[in-house]
Amino acid sequence: MKQQFIGGWLVFLGACSFGVLSSIVKTAYHAGYTLGEVTGVQCMFGMLILWGLHVIFTTFRRPPNKVSNNDNNKPFTPRWKVVATGIFPGLVGICYYQCVQLIPASIAIILLMQYLWMSVMIDYVVFKNKPTSMQLLAVIVIIVGSCLAAGITNQSIHLNLTGCLFGLLAALMYSLFISTSSNIGNHLPKLEKSALMITGACIITFLIFPPFFLFKLSFNDLIYQLGLLLALLGTVLPPFLFAIGMPKIGISLSAILSTAELPVAVTCSYWYLQESVYFSQWLGVLMILLAMVLPNLIHLRKKR
């Protein structure tokens, strides 16, 4: 019971750390920094930290006595393919942070959450896995809740169309990342796999936004502090907490606790960024949370 409690808290904290990213990005924009500077510094710090941790753990870790049969059964993936998979999280960061720049952060996170039904569609179209009736019902509730949360029923809310398109594009890239990363590089240690992926994200980011700004900024510049915070809360800490906590509590309960990202992001935008969040939007957020939580609760109940 104690291990489950600790594991649950770790997963919950990992989800919460994801939820505060949009508010930090908004702070960087208000300070005058650009999309390329924010995404570039975050990817650079994330790559350096992950590779540094990988070198430290590899140096001081005892070599295993023998390789288990489970490890032998895992398909081998060339490391360059794992790096290539990092293109998707790199594009997620670029598209999502561009969305945050153009529309309120409380609505940007709603658009990103559309990866939930997009993943179901990709799983059906690409992998031929037919969705269950519960999944289809959850998709319908998520779409309706997203319309409410985005403020479609509120005439006082005017959304930037370009920002919405970038938000939906970020959701698509995230769903593609989930679909590919779960099938690639599973034979590698989790830390090395994460470092390879963030390297790919850093490469695509620097190709789109060449890092010339690194030569213009001083080392005590605010962007480095914000970028380090984004790297820790968005790149390093959540995967680490999830890797420790999820095996202790299982996939279904982890999926329930990871929904904390959505209310945390909306709450931060309301209290910290002083963005207006109407009752209909909170109702939409609640609908999305129910659509995410109820199927996993039903699965847990059947399992018990």
Rank of each mutant, 00 (worst) to 15 (best):
Q3H: 11
Q4M: 13
F5G: 02
G8V: 06
W9N: 14
F12V: 01
F12E: 04
G14P: 03
G14W: 04
G14E: 07
G19H: 08
V20Y: 02
S22C: 05
I24K: 02
V25Y: 02
T27R: 11
T27H: 09
T27I: 11
Y29G: 07
H30M: 13
A31H: 08
A31T: 10
G32F: 07
G36L: 05
V38P: 11
T39L: 01
G40S: 05
V41T: 15
C43Y: 10
F45P: 10
L48D: 06
I49M: 07
H54R: 01
T59Q: 09
T59D: 05
F60W: 14
P63W: 08
S68Q: 05
T77G: 01
R79H: 11
R79K: 13
W80H: 11
V82A: 09
G90T: 05
G90C: 09
I94T: 01
I94G: 02
Q98R: 09
Q98I: 05
Q98H: 13
C99P: 00
P104C: 03
S106Y: 01
S106H: 07
I107P: 04
A108M: 00
L112I: 04
M113Q: 13
L116G: 13
W117T: 06
M121V: 15
V126N: 04
K128W: 09
K130R: 15
S133M: 15
M134Q: 12
A138L: 00
V139S: 11
V139R: 06
V144E: 02
V144P: 05
G145I: 05
G145E: 03
L148M: 14
L148R: 03
G151V: 10
Q155K: 15
H158E: 11
N160I: 03
T162R: 00
T162E: 00
G163R: 01
L165P: 00
L165Q: 07
F166A: 07
A170Q: 03
Y174V: 08
F177H: 12
F177P: 01
F177N: 15
I184P: 00
G185V: 06
N186E: 14
N186T: 14
N186W: 01
K190G: 15
K190C: 12
L191R: 09
K193F: 12
K193H: 12
I198H: 07
I198P: 03
I203Y: 02
I204V: 15
T205Q: 07
F209Q: 01
P210S: 03
P211W: 06
L214N: 10
K216E: 14
L222A: 11
L222N: 10
I223P: 10
Y224H: 05
Q225M: 13
L226F: 13
A231G: 11
T235L: 08
V236G: 00
L237G: 04
P239V: 09
F240E: 09
G245E: 06
I251C: 00
S254V: 08
A260I: 00
A265L: 06
A265F: 02
S269K: 04
Y272T: 06
Q274C: 09
E275F: 09
F279H: 12
Q281I: 14
Q281H: 10
G284Q: 07
M287Q: 06
I288T: 02
I288D: 11
L289K: 04
L290T: 12
P295N: 03
N296G: 03
N296Q: 08
I298A: 13
L300T: 08
L300Q: 08
K302G: 06
R304T: 14
R304K: 15
